[in-house]
Design a protein around this nucleic acid. Structure first.
Lengths: 256, 256
DNA sequence: ATTTGTGAATAAGTTCACAGCC
DNA sequence: GGCTGTGAACTTATTCACAAAT
């Protein structure tokens, strides 16, 4: 949309808004497209069709085209998309042209793993500081970073201009940590603690809860089981749901 | 809507299906409600209003009521919901009345952390087996479980009737692992590897990609920054987007 | 001949607002 | 008076299907 100005309206000097405000669903898929594009680029592809890219990203091509159309028009009809150009474009929109600093709070089981996860570094982020409340952990060095006490969080967040805070503490501590991040000027939080955070307007929180993911899968397992149990049609004379907690297949059976 | 048969068609003896097929969006929120309910129960609450529970789960009350209405009618007008009853109901629907066995594949950085994560155990799951392809890791004991070689995966999955497979391997290995899980009868997969998996119909895959979460947050950071930079109205005479890669606020600035 | 970009149609999800029950 | 359950209104997201472009 910028370098290749659309030939239709060439004179208009009115600018495109700095960032088209994309549908959330689209934003959530762009990183996946980006990953697929990087794979293609590594394999030497210079262009790619919506069909191909869609398959690589696990969506259908109509959705992909609609998503990309929100960014502007970077494809060539009859040919496809220029891989390198599209990478630049998506990285720009996602704000990845700047490496953002991340503070990781809670260096327990999960936090330790996150601190060592190289996927962050390779995809545009820099873990800039580690924190923990446990004095035993403070001072420990992980991946070249020394764990600091969480009391320093707000101050350091400002000093290091932290863009994103990652909370990997127990649920009980998470809200206090969030408050300190906010006090330190952080406006984006990724929360691994199984609890709801309250934050001021303008602060974005995303939550990842590993047990929740399993529970969602569990639902589908349960459903698949109940479907294969009732062979097909009528499914009559069944009024399940607890109190009786009827189980409907061998794997499911508990007390039938 | 299940026990209270709709007054329109009262005679039909056709039974309600064992599991109401809930909207996906609802399914994804039930675990959150469940967590909030357990908190309430621990604090001695016996009933709860939709308003309260909604707040605790971080949604609005209309959404909560609509979600719960899909399960049936377990509230009492003028009073609220019976906490214990609702817990039972949600756990039943999610299939958590049965403890499901999980196989975790890939005992590296992240896998190690997952193997030690007690949130799985406390929320209805049992890690039943660990696998890795690296001979050095095979045999290692983690949390009372010995790491087995991934070649044994299919066989063990059948023997232990694994319900859910968790993939925490590098991307390059993930598809092969998925194939083995499927061969072992596993129909639900949680994928932490940054890649798209191809699986047969009837197999559910959920993906968690930590870098993707950060990238989504990055987009919102970028947007917030560009908004505060353009004070308000016209925003004219700005033609950003790359090649010039114009940055629009101090934090964003790279070369302006 | 292909393949994008997009209006129009459909589906899914959310919110409103209030009737109905306690 | 208070609170649930739910149609109806609205918003967001997905899919279809084809005109426009190369």
């Amino acid at each position: 949309m910028s370098p290749h100005r659309p030939p239709g309206e060439p004179e208009r000097p009115v600018a495109v808004p700095a960032l088209p405000d994309l549908p959330e669903a689209t934003v959530a898929r762009l990183p996946e497209y980006l990953r697929a594009l990087h794979n293609l680029a590594e394999n030497g592809h210079e262009t790619v069709s919506s069909e191909w890219l869609a398959t690589a990203a696990g969506v259908n091509s109509a959705k992909l085209r609609k998503d990309l159309s929100h960014l502007g028009s970077y494809g060539t009809r009859g040919v496809g998309y220029d891989v390198a150009l599209l990478i630049d474009q998506i990285e720009y929109v996602l704000g990845l042209t700047q490496r953002r600093s991340v503070a990781l709070v809670g260096v327990g089981n999960l936090g330790h793993a996150l601190a060592g996860y190289d996927g962050f570094a390779t995809r545009g982020f820099r873990i800039a500081a580690l924190f923990d409340a446990d004095p035993v952990r403070v001072g420990e060095e992980i991946n070249g970073l020394v764990v600091r006490h969480v009391d320093e969080l707000s101050r350091v967040a400002i000093e290091e201009s932290i863009a994103i805070g990652v909370i990997a503490t127990p649920a009980a501590a998470a809200q206090r940590v969030a408050d300190r991040l906010v006090a330190g000027g952080v406006t984006s939080i990724l929360n691994f603690a199984p609890c709801v955070l309250t934050v001021p307007d303008g602060v974005d929180v995303r939550k990842v809860d590993l047990a929740v993911e399993l529970q969602i899968l569990s639902f589908h397992e349960h459903r698949k089981a109940s479907l294969t149990a009732l062979p097909a049609a009528g499914a009559a004379t069944l009024t399940p749901l607890p109190g009786d907690l009827a189980a409907t297949d061998p794997q499911e059976a508990i007390g039938t």
